[in-house]
Amino acid sequence: MEYWVPLLIFVLKNIVMSYPETLRYTKDHEWISLDGDIATIGITDFAQRELGDIVYVEVETIGTSLKAGDVFGTVEAVKTVSDLFLPVDGEVTELNEALGNAPELVNTDPYGEGWMIRMKVANPADVAALLDAAAYEALVG
């Protein structure tokens, strides 16, 4: 067992974390932004902080149609590994190739250069039904 993983109790009161209003969020700590029926997905500031220094992102589901909640990849950090869950039904279309040489972008810019995948969303209305920034902040607060 990675000995502290089940025991993580973070003291975050001194740290300002951000959750942009324009995004939607999942309880699994992914964010999603929608443009037409194409969505961009990454992990939240909370998640990157929880994982620590990220070593690489593995996605082998490109071209695959998946359901919401399915594992679309994994993220390996120095100390731990975590599955990545698809926020809504759809097909994974693209991996952020920049992460291949610079996985640390997930830590330094989780909502920007550190995005992980793009997907074609089966039903764009599903996105609006996810958590908004305030609801997600309440979840991790």
């Binding site: 025991l7 993580l8 001194n14």
Partner: peptide, 15 residues
């Protein structure tokens, strides 16, 4: 550690 903003966790019963 708290003042320095460290990420804290329980280890062997200690914070």
């Amino acid at each position: 550690h708290l003042e320095l903003g460290a990420k804290m966790a329980e280890f062997a019963g200690y914070n």
